[in-house]
Design a protein around this nucleic acid. Structure first.
Lengths: 222, 222
DNA sequence: GGTCCAATTATACTTTGGTCGAAGGGAGGT
DNA sequence: ACCTCCCTTCGACCAAAGTATAATTGGACC
């Protein structure tokens, strides 16, 4: 019996992608694995493989940090079960991930065996959490939920622009990165601000920061 | 024997200021108490009473949220011992407060007796931490330390502008609030960005967010 | 084929943001 | 008193951001 055909792995760290690949093959030897190193690649992968059975998502990818990537992927692919992989394992991080629609959460410190257990559980429709965590109907602050809902309304391209916006880039720089004209970026930014309910880009990045992972924890946690 | 003459209390919550006043008088019945409800008032207080013996500082004042207020006060008044009062009591919040120069940390949940104990200890030159916390030479991430150092270079007025900037206000709005022309604000913003080492206001608010308290915790924690 | 929508671009315009140079004033030193 | 340093203030000028409108392309869905 095969549980899954296609599984997408999204993580910017090559070594860790290797470990995840191993864990996946242990749970589903037949599975086709698609890898994404950046958020842009992930978007490409989810678009071209809309029949994927599972997504393993790191919360710290170049191109979209924090919960925004999870929120956005979930909003565009509701039927794609997503397991969050994170270096952080604080209870509130886990609870927020679940509240944002993750079907499971796996700390990066987990041994391969545990990871494949988690995958199997999620593929069978269960929700998998680290040992000791209960699935207490996770709920978000109303404010965060509101931001997430608005973020979900963005189109894929708008989301990319939004991410770069949130890094403090100029319209001109974003235009260059995306190989389009500055006029296009301005159009996107206007649309983004309207959807987020703000009046300028600075307020937009403040919204984005509501969904950030905490920088308070040493960034050295592998 | 009197331990202190002047003590400044900075907290936006009137009821809590009352409790702090009580705690102060218990420790130093003779003390003169100066109260500040906003960060602006605190700046005024520290300027006019440079001979104050102690500052009780809440980390969530209108006009300057997060550690920025602590950092800034400490940078301008190095000899003024500061005890941080906070609704949050996570170990990492406490450690960061100490690393940013606080002489003590008191959770808002503490009974009055404990608070006055803390004040007494700090007035005697000790460092006071909640029960169970060791004074393990707190250190910051290099990144956060760098931001703090740059913040400390701002002038008082620049800091006020910076705080409003970080809330997403327009130059025009800041000018109105501070009753000066927009040209003045622009000059300040330019100076701020130079000192912070960034090239536009959006990047400046990103820096500010490195020093924010977490919004992840329900804002309802009194 | 027709409809809807994301994405793209352009033009023209208004508003905001950011730089530069400069003037006034207070604090401190000689 | 004099000078210097720095904070604060400001106006003029140019660059970037944001608005409004409109047109084109191409994919998805009926």
């Amino acid at each position: 019996m095969r549980l899954a055909d296609k599984i997408i792995i999204a993580d910017d760290h090559p070594l860790f992608r290797g470990a995840l690949r191993e864990a996946v093959l242990k749970a589903c030897p037949e599975a086709t694995i698609i890898e994404a190193e950046t958020f842009a690649e992930l978007q490409e992968a989810t678009d071209q493989h809309s029949d994927a059975d599972l997504l393993l998502l790191d919360l710290n990818m170049p191109g979209a940090t924090g919960f925004s990537s999870l929120i956005f992927v979930r909003s565009k692919h509701e039927s794609l079960p997503t397991v969050v992989i994170s270096a952080l394992e604080e209870p509130w991080v886990i609870r927020r991930a679940i509240a944002h629609g993750a079907a499971g959460f796996v700390p990066k410190s987990s041994p391969v065996g545990v990871i494949s257990e988690a995958l199997t559980a999620v593929l069978e429709g269960d929700c998998w959490l680290p040992a000791g965590m209960e699935h207490d109907d996770a709920s978000l602050e109303p404010g965060e939920q509101a931001v997430a809902d608005r973020l979900a309304q963005l189109t894929p391209q708008q989301f990319r622009v939004f991410s770069m916006l949130s890094e403090g880039l100029l319209n001109k720089q974003i235009a260059f990165e995306l190989s389009v004209s500055e006029a296009t970026i301005k159009a996107h930014v206007t649309a983004i601000m309207k959807k987020l309910g703000v009046t300028n880009r600075t307020q937009a990045v403040l919204e984005a920061n509501h969904l950030a992972l905490e920088r308070k924890f040493p960034s050295s946690v592998a």
